[in-house]
């Protein structure tokens, strides 16, 4: 399947629109471009020329539906999304890691170190999202940044519709899911904690009776799901399946975390951790798992909606 300049232009002009409207505008824009190219005699360069004359696809898209997306205009939305995502996945973990390292050097208890790290992580995410959004909204509303690229826009700036529509997700799933599965097995088979020659697993070994196999199966299904989404895109069935898989992992995990029965009790005894602190940390992790799962499930439907 080849992507023509027209495909990329239409994608760039309409990608921020809601599903049904987007399909309409896509079809109309395609007709318009193809008619214009044909009127030029259909020369090979005609397509590029026609698109250059049309100009910035975002402006064209806005003209078609007569309004801009809400809080952030279309010009700001994608830069905002890119920067926010980048900051959240890089800066937040780094700062959390630093907090935990400092805590470790100061001789804090393991519970306090982990708790501090998780807390810092959440706090950083909230701050990063809030402040970047604020900066972008101010820029957008004051029009300071409204770039004059109506003049400088060129066809070469078109994004490739296939980029980021799934390959990145697939690679991430292909790396993360097996890694997580390996981690689960490793913590049981050869954990780093040893007492009297016995290795102490991190998670309660009793959980192998049902929970851990269930998680491994869920991970395998998640991987299959990622391949399915990569090949077929985010369809409604894919979003529902995503919801099912998310619940399959989240419900037992959160239940066990709140119940306190996920950590190997022998390990707690070995380190002489304060049970109250352990409980607090597990509760914090449960909240984190809940938030991430809710987002995961919602995100699937959001993507299915966007894909129309």
């Amino acid at each position: 399947m080849t992507t023509t300049l027209t495909d990329r232009y239409v994608h760039a002009a309409t990608r921020w629109m809601p599903g049904r409207v987007r399909h309409e505008v896509e079809a109309e824009l395609r007709e318009r471009i193809e008619d214009t190219v044909e009127a030029q005699g259909g020369r090979p360069e005609a397509e590029r020329e026609a698109l250059e004359i049309l100009g910035d696809p975002l402006r064209i898209g806005v003209e078609y539906i007569g309004r801009e997306p809400a809080l952030l205009g279309p010009r700001m939305f994608f830069p905002w999304l890119r920067l926010t995502a980048l900051l959240v996945v890089t800066v937040a973990p780094i700062v959390a890691a630093i907090t935990m390292t400092v805590g470790a050097f100061e001789g804090d208890s393991v519970g306090a170190i982990i708790g501090g790290g998780v807390w810092t992580l959440l706090e950083m995410v909230v701050h990063l999202v809030f402040w970047t959004t604020l900066v972008f909204v101010v820029l957008d509303w004051t029009g300071i940044s409204a770039p004059s690229d109506a003049d400088t826009w060129s066809v070469d700036q078109l994004p490739d519709p296939r980029a980021g529509t799934g390959l990145g997700d697939l690679v991430a799933a292909g790396v993360f899911l097996p890694f997580f599965a390996a981690l689960l097995v490793w913590q049981h088979v050869s954990p780093p904690f040893v007492e009297d020659g016995d290795r102490l697993a991190v998670l309660d070994p009793d959980l192998w009776s049902w929970y851990l196999p269930l998680v491994l199966v869920t991970l395998a299904l998640e991987l299959a799901h990622a391949v399915w989404v990569y090949r077929r895109g985010w369809t409604w069935p894919a979003a529902w399946a995503n919801l099912g898989l998310t619940l399959l992992f989240a419900v037992p995990t959160i239940a066990l975390l709140l119940d306190g029965s996920i950590v190997n009790p022998e390990l707690v005894a070995h380190f002489d951790w304060d049970p109250a602190v352990v409980e607090q940390v597990l509760r914090g992790i449960a909240v984190g798992v809940g938030l991430v799962s809710a987002w995961e499930a919602f995100d699937g439907f959001r993507k299915a909606q966007a894909a129309g």
């Binding site: 109309e28 318009r32 064209i60 078609y64 539906i65 007569g66």
Partner: peptide, 11 residues
């Protein structure tokens, strides 16, 4: 101009 006409038709 096309930029006027096409959106006008939609409207």
């Amino acid at each position: 101009d096309g930029n006027t006409l096409y959106p006008l038709l939609r409207r």
